[in-house]
Amino acid sequence: MENIAPQLYTLLVFMVIGSVVAVETKNLLSAVISVSAVGFALSVAFLFMGAPDIAITQLVVEVLVLIILIRGTILLDNTAVETHGDTLAVVASLIFFGLLLGFGAMIFGSTGFPEFGEPVMRVSRVYVQTGLPATHAANIVTSVILDFRAYDTLGEATVLFTSVIGALALLRKDGKVRREEVASA
């Protein structure tokens, strides 16, 4: 791929429009479907930027996000909640956006912001050069996840385990209490 900028800009414009629709639409079902469209466009953008691992994962996870959001929330209640003109929130968002750009200008003001396609990080050179000889894994991303930085992945597994246990505990507690009440009564 010689120059991916046109494709990437098209996908980015699509994603911004999709997120605007997801934020502003009254119907919750169309909001969820719009946010899933943003996720699928994100998957295609990952594929263009040389990240097939992440494209696969994002695609599959996006399907699950769509199913969980529809099955878990939308089927319960799909009534629109009217939001009255809340100027404070708009002002707060704009202030945060200005702060974000201001910090970016402060950090990169002297050196100039790095152009797209010219990465500034140099640490990964080690992984690319020594990944295959050191681990014998052809996929450098997998060798980074599970060999060089396996400790990170252990922490990630802990976070996932905790969140899943939390979700199960939130959803299960009521049923067990009721069953005990029935048994004691």
Binding site: I54, T57, V65, L69, Y127, T153, L160, V164, A167
Partner: peptide
């Protein structure tokens, strides 16, 4: 490859926190 490795775990964590 380093940001890809970080994002790969971040996506799955996003799914876990979404379910929570």
């Amino acid at each position: 490859p380093l940001p890809q490795a970080l994002v790969l775990t971040s996506i799955v964590i996003g799914l876990g926190t979404l379910s929570l």
